[in-house]
Computed example of a mutant assay.
Amino acid sequence: MSSDSPQATIECSTEERDDIVNENGEMNAMVNRLRSSIEGVQNSFSTIYSTLAINLKRSFEMIQAMNSMMEQFLLSNIHIKIDAQDDSIPCLLTIIISNTCQFPAQKASCNLMFRKKGEDEEAIIKIECIDSIVQGIKNSNNSNSGLKSSSPLSIFVPKPCIGSSTSNALFTLPPQTQIIEKVKLVPSELAQIIG
């Protein structure tokens, strides 16, 4: 009996090892399945993020293109006409800025700059606004498009000044509207002046 006893112990150890090997095999298989599931989820998220990044980039490019197109459309519908009556001193400059499109021109600003012909230095000219009117543009029936005339502050010359006039004031030019501004120019000397 004593000789059978060690064999029983050995057999028992072999069974335990088999159980442990089976458990380890199942555990390894479960870990491998879990690893492949996690890799699949990571690949899915990576694909989703890549697709999202591509779509966001395309959307951003489309928005930029639309903004550029709208800006070009607005600029093509802003017209500036200048009429100088230089037969007397002071010279009278009439400036008409028209917005012929259906959108307002917002955050606009204007400036007048003068220099002597052939020179880079500014010409010394006294600038004074005589009249500034905002009104609707006349349509084909020669009637104003609904906006009544008003006299705002000058968009070019906030107050009488000497030299170039730069107004920091921003204004909005409503759709189908024009600003007519008359400015008096008194040069300090007789010379050809570029404005």
Rank of each mutant, 00 (worst) to 15 (best):
C129D: 11
E15H: 10
N111Q: 14
F171M: 02
P175Q: 03
T172M: 06
G136F: 02
N28H: 11
A191G: 07
V41Q: 14
T100F: 08
F73N: 09
G25Q: 10
A123M: 08
N139D: 15
S50L: 08
I180N: 11
L52M: 12
C101S: 14
K117P: 00
Q135H: 14
Q85K: 14
K184D: 00
I54A: 15
I124H: 04
A53W: 02
T94M: 04
Q64N: 13
M70Y: 01
H79N: 10
C110T: 13
S68N: 09
N144H: 13
L153W: 02
N22S: 13
N99T: 03
S109D: 13
S13H: 08
R17A: 11
G118I: 09
I125S: 05
Q192F: 04
S5E: 15
S2N: 14
I180T: 12
I137E: 05
M69F: 05
A108L: 15
G25Y: 09
M70W: 00
F114L: 13
F156G: 03
T14A: 11
T166K: 14
E181K: 04
D86T: 15
I54P: 00
N141V: 00
Q135V: 05
Q192S: 14
E71K: 11
N141Y: 08
M30H: 07
L92Y: 04
Q64R: 12
Q192K: 12
G40R: 04
S167K: 02
F45N: 03
F60Q: 12
G136V: 08
Q64C: 05
P6F: 11
A105R: 01
L74R: 13
P152N: 01
P104S: 07
T94R: 07
K182V: 06
V157E: 02
I63T: 11
P90K: 02
I97F: 03
S44I: 00
N99P: 01
I179Q: 05
Q135E: 15
I125V: 15
